[in-house]
Design a protein around this nucleic acid. Sequence first.
DNA 1: CTGAAAGCGCTAACAA
DNA 2: TTGTTAGCGCTTTCAG
Lengths: 330, 330
Amino acid sequence: MAVRVTMADVARAAGVSTATVSYVLSGKRAVAGGTRKAVEAAIAELGFTVNTAARSLRTGRSSIVALVVPDLANPFYAQLAASLREELRPLGLHVMVCDTKADRDEERAYLREAVQQRFAGVVITPFRLTAKDFLLLSEAGIPAVVSADLPFGETDLVTPDARAAMRAALTEVTGAGRRRIAMIAGPRDATGGDPRLELLRALAVQFGLSLPGRLVVRGEHTREAGAAGFAHLMGVKHRPDAVFCANDAVAIGAMDKAEELGVGIPGDVALIGHDDASFASLVRPRLTTVRYSAVDVGRAAARLLVERLDGRVTRRTVRVKAEFVPRETV
Amino acid sequence: MAVRVTMADVARAAGVSTATVSYVLSGKRAVAGGTRKAVEAAIAELGFTVNTAARSLRTGRSSIVALVVPDLANPFYAQLAASLREELRPLGLHVMVCDTKADRDEERAYLREAVQQRFAGVVITPFRLTAKDFLLLSEAGIPAVVSADLPFGETDLVTPDARAAMRAALTEVTGAGRRRIAMIAGPRDATGGDPRLELLRALAVQFGLSLPGRLVVRGEHTREAGAAGFAHLMGVKHRPDAVFCANDAVAIGAMDKAEELGVGIPGDVALIGHDDASFASLVRPRLTTVRYSAVDVGRAAARLLVERLDGRVTRRTVRVKAEFVPRETV
DNA sequence: CTGAAAGCGCTAACAA
DNA sequence: TTGTTAGCGCTTTCAG
């Protein structure tokens, strides 16, 4: 047990030096065909696998990329993880998924962890972090890609472009004669406020609508918060006839509560989600939503990260277009 | 940038040796109060974080535990990940979640990876692996905990005890006068067959029912496979009036198809899921299912793993009881 | 209670 | 085209 085969063993078996074994593995130096064959045979024979700890110590960099997200149980992030992994895998990079539960201390702990482990990079959807928290990473020379609306210091950015999609949503909502729009938004203390709310506010004006403070409720990005927020909105006078939600989980929570309260969806109130998480098409009526493609985000983040590892030093931003998905709740 | 602070820096600043710094960190040797204070101050001052690559190289073991699952998008596994992480975190162990998409090559690749990275341990829900594949791990001295029905070689095991729950399900199904039960089971080539199917078969006999081959359909553990399986079952003559599903995703797929086909649930056909994934209570009618607690599995796996790391050498098995959750589809 | 120093396995600069 | 070798930063044995 614990028979560990080292490069030295392989080198001995193949009758070469460890340098040659290393070069066969990395391809960073030409190796004669016969030599390569011998080395490969020895590797197979002995069942050698490189010790990544030694490699990392030597190179000062691990092959792990951390993906830090607020909620793994949200299929959006699960998909993002899958997408990122798929993009990074061919490059020999591994993804370590970290769930922070939207907690700032957890978020920080993972950034710290990234430094400690000398991760190759970090892809993060920050929820309660500030630019200052990213100093740790930049000091350690670890590139970060942020999926958010604004960058943090020198980080690269993957950001949604939801304007057209939201405009389409509002067109549909107002087309059905609805005028009293509301939003169940994210928490007040989230990093950078709530861009989805800001966007809705801005667009509302263009549609001649208003979004008064009493029609904006705030809470976590969870089903429970959605239910609570919807309950509150239904208690307000001149209650809304259309409710935009911070994400699909929130919208589903709102649907739970609507059913409980006997409020008709979309008869009495239209409901618009965000993200198009896998369960959006699962509920009845099917949730109308604004799709933000986790796969596209993963791809973009991977590309940005790889460019950084290849030496790019200037900050870059990639916009990912959102898309209106009309279903049955408007 | 890339200012890396090493233990030597800390030692110098505190006027001690690196050994002392190391012992302050690990607590493996008594250190005088004053010395400890000085070291801690220096660590804080310089912002030192230990280089885990060096540590791993030296100790021959990383602090990462791999959690290898067939489908991260399934909330059951997302929950399992969260649970495992929570249990292992206080021990300084980190969880790396690996999604294999139920593919054997992926599963193997991750076991290989575990060896390469000298992971502290592996927790895995194998889908198409055989005992032989685990040799790699045992040779490298890496403990594995398997979440399945049977162990693989020397691995520890967390296994479901679903007999009582399934019996309750059958009682409810037959109580409603249903006699023609069917199952949309897992793929034929899955490791260890399909224990949920075997259990259903065994229990059916006790209820004086039969589960003929034409009423057993096989497919992946996905919504799509569920839809396809259900479509097939609806085409069979003497079609079933109760369908058990390999997991909840499969059951949801069956519901999709039932709606499309105009088959009433539970009016025409009763539907029973498995796992109680978060979306089981989301669909309408709400899915009746057999709950298998991911949190309990995570806890058990963590405990087994830690015992191994503490030196236990004999194989252990922990049973986790499943529970019947009657909702609206029977 | 503390320090000196070896060495984990690898990479890459330098030498041949 | 290949080999020699220093050294990455840590833990731990041995010595004091």
